[in-house]
């Protein structure tokens, strides 16, 4: 039975009247038309559908709509265009087919929140849930280091400004 669910999506309040057991992935894509969150396996195995729910990184294919009630969801579309990860990804030429990359970036984002200067090992642990069939893994490592650097510089300039 459909049910009215309310949550914040990329800073904007959303109300959807859908079966609350529907995975959030399909609500984002089919109901709300946000295509950055990708479908790869529907079993929580590939990471293509990674989003953040109240700051916690989750696989949206495993998350029933009801779990979003009253919470804040961030998808790749919610990242500001000057986000260090987006810049690092482009400058490192990470992208091949690109299908996995929104999910990779969402996972990397939560890694940098907990480990602002991650080691290769920490990257490998944090990013294990995200599959890339095009083999961009070595560049993802590079890009995460690069993004960490950009964040640091941004923080320093901010510090100087104030």
């Amino acid at each position: 039975m459909p049910e009215m669910i309310e949550f914040e999506l990329n800073g904007v309040l959303q109300r959807v009247d859908e079966d609350p057991t529907t995975p959030l992935l399909w609500i984002l894509r089919d109901t709300l038309g946000l295509t950055g969150t990708k479908f790869g396996c529907a079993q929580g195995l590939c990471g293509a559908c990674t989003v953040s729910l109240d700051g916690v990184t989750l696989r949206s294919c495993q998350l029933p709509l009801s779990a979003a009630q009253g919470k804040a969801v961030t998808t790749i579309e919610g990242l500001p265009s000057e986000d260090p990860l987006l810049r690092a990804w482009t400058e490192t030429n990470v992208i091949q087919c690109g299908y996995c990359q929104p999910g990779q970036i969402m996972s990397a984002r939560s890694l940098l929140d907990t480990h602002p200067q991650p080691s290769d090992e920490q990257i490998d642990v944090a990013m294990q849930g995200n599959i890339c069939r095009c083999g961009t893994y070595p560049r993802i490592r590079q890009a995460i280091h690069h993004a960490a650097q950009i964040r640091l510089e941004q923080a320093e300039t901010k510090g100087e400004d104030s």
Binding site: G33, T35, L79, C97, P102
Partner: peptide
């Protein structure tokens, strides 16, 4: 080594994959 021209759109989830057709 010119950078890929599809990089930004793909990172941001704006590139149109087969899966995305019509959802807009």
């Amino acid at each position: 080594s010119l950078l890929r021209t599809d990089g930004v759109a793909k990172c941001r989830g704006q590139a149109l994959f087969g899966m995305d057709v019509g959802l807009d």
